[in-house]
Design a protein around this nucleic acid. Structure first.
Lengths: 133, 133
DNA sequence: GTTGACCTTCCCACCTTGGCAAGGTCTACA
DNA sequence: TGTAGACCTTGCCAAGGTGGGAAGGTCAAC
């Protein structure tokens, strides 16, 4: 059993976030010491690391709730896990496409901008006029 | 002169957002009719469209404030505009890289998941163990 | 017994957008 | 003239996820 600070250091999830996850019922309420301190086991840290890793992969906390349920369910179907993952991959790809479109447009505009003391700049002209949009 | 609804429709910025931009001083306070309705000119709509386009390119409202100031400054240096744009491009590229890393990892994991009724799934195993992370 | 590191709860901020409620105004039509 | 319906006003709440800080209790070590 350890305090929240130890659990945070061991899991890579900040104490602040551990309390938050508890408050939104992503985590069950932690056991408490007589003084009211939260007390965590190694198993709890294991769960926190799972969450941390899933966050690193960009899953929303809602998705993580679903993944945790599947993780704990020994009778789960791997199809359910795969579906969540692939849905997330699709969302990531959509987002990547969006950002790439923005970056491409801006790179092109910037390439045609002198970038000196003169005021004329195709970037502003494009924003002004709506550039082919 | 037109009401906020017309200005919104003409610019592609919702009435809600026009009021918000005014509240955070991104826009000067609009003129008002005797009844207190905001009144916009074609020039105002022009500015709103500029903002809309910049948002579509992923600029933050803070960046847009800077871009608007440069836009209005006839004596601006195009270097200042270019710097803002390229800084933003770098941020976009960083974000794209992050998302691509996530997507690549997940695609790999998903490719090795049966995706059927069986419970074993490398996605969960990876989240569990921290997969080479 | 005191100091300093830890814990507790609670509120605030970020950023941008949407939604809803309660009320005032304007337009068009009966 | 009245009234319906579309518009406007302000204000509050929500999201997602994280960090910061205040005010106070607890614990360990010296």
């Amino acid at each position: 059993m350890m305090n929240i600070g130890k659990a945070a250091a061991a899991s890579g999830v900040s104490a602040k976030m551990i309390r938050y996850y508890e408050s939104i019922d992503l985590l069950a309420a932690a056991r408490r010491t007589d003084a009211g301190y939260r007390a965590y086991t190694d198993e709890d840290v294991h769960v926190l690391r799972f969450i941390r890793r899933a966050r690193d992969l960009g899953f929303s906390l809602a998705d993580i709730g679903d993944l945790l349920a599947l993780w704990r369910d020994q009778g789960r179907a791997s199809a359910d896990v795969k579906r969540i993952a692939l849905t997330h991959v699709a969302a990531l790809e959509r987002k990547i496409g969006e950002l790439q479109g923005m970056a491409d447009t801006l790179r092109t505009l910037a390439a045609h901008c002198h970038g000196d003391a003169r005021p004329d700049c195709p970037i502003l002209t494009d924003l002004d006029a709506g550039g082919g949009h």
